[in-house]
Measured scan of single mutants.
Amino acid sequence: MSIQHFRVALIPFFAAFCLPVFAHPETLVKVKDAEDQLGARVGYIELDLNSGKILESFRPEERFPMMSTFKVLLCGAVLSRVDAGQEQLGRRIHYSQNDLVEYSPVTEKHLTDGMTVRELCSAAITMSDNTAANLLLTTIGGPKELTAFLHNMGDHVTRLDRWEPELNEAIPNDERDTTMPAAMATTLRKLLTGELLTLASRQQLIDWMEADKVAGPLLRSALPAGWFIADKSGAGERGSRGIIAALGPDGKPSRIVVIYTTGSQATMDERNRQIAEIGASLIKHW
Results as ranks from 00 to 15, higher is better:
S240Y: 03
P20H: 10
Q4R: 10
L73K: 01
E175I: 14
V42K: 00
G279V: 05
L135P: 00
L28S: 08
M153L: 14
D33P: 01
D231P: 04
E46A: 10
K213M: 14
P181D: 00
L120N: 02
E277M: 10
E145S: 12
L196P: 13
T139F: 06
W208K: 01
P165I: 08
M1N: 01
R81L: 09
M184T: 03
I54V: 15
I206E: 09
V42A: 06
I256W: 01
K109G: 14
F228N: 06
A133D: 00
A170V: 12
A77E: 09
A84L: 10
A211N: 12
C121F: 01
S233F: 01
T69P: 04
D250Y: 12
N152C: 11
F17W: 10
K232D: 00
Q4S: 14
A132E: 00
M66Q: 06
A215P: 05
G242V: 01
L282W: 02
T139Y: 07
L137D: 01
R63F: 06
Y44F: 11
L218C: 05
R255P: 00
G142N: 07
S240Q: 07
G279E: 02
L73E: 03
E277N: 11
R91W: 04
S122H: 12
K53E: 12
S128V: 00
S2H: 15
L10A: 14
N134C: 04
G43D: 00
A170N: 09
L196R: 15
L192F: 12
E26G: 12
R162A: 06
E145G: 15
Y103M: 06
D231R: 03
L197C: 05
S51G: 09
G234F: 01
R271V: 10
A235P: 00
P217W: 05
D174L: 04
I243F: 05
T179E: 00
G236R: 01
L146F: 12
E166S: 13
S240T: 07
M67N: 12
D48N: 08
Q204W: 06
R159C: 06
D250N: 15
P25N: 09
F6Q: 09
I256T: 03
E119W: 02
I229K: 02
R81C: 05
V42Q: 01
S122I: 14
R59W: 04
V72T: 09
S68P: 00
D83K: 04
V78F: 04
G114E: 04
G76L: 04
R241M: 04
T187S: 12
L49H: 05
S128T: 01
T179V: 02
H156W: 11
P224C: 05
L219P: 04
T131G: 14
H156S: 11
L247R: 00
A84Q: 14
A123C: 08
M127R: 09
P181H: 00
K32D: 05
T116C: 07
V8P: 11
F149D: 05
R92T: 11
H94T: 14
E164N: 00
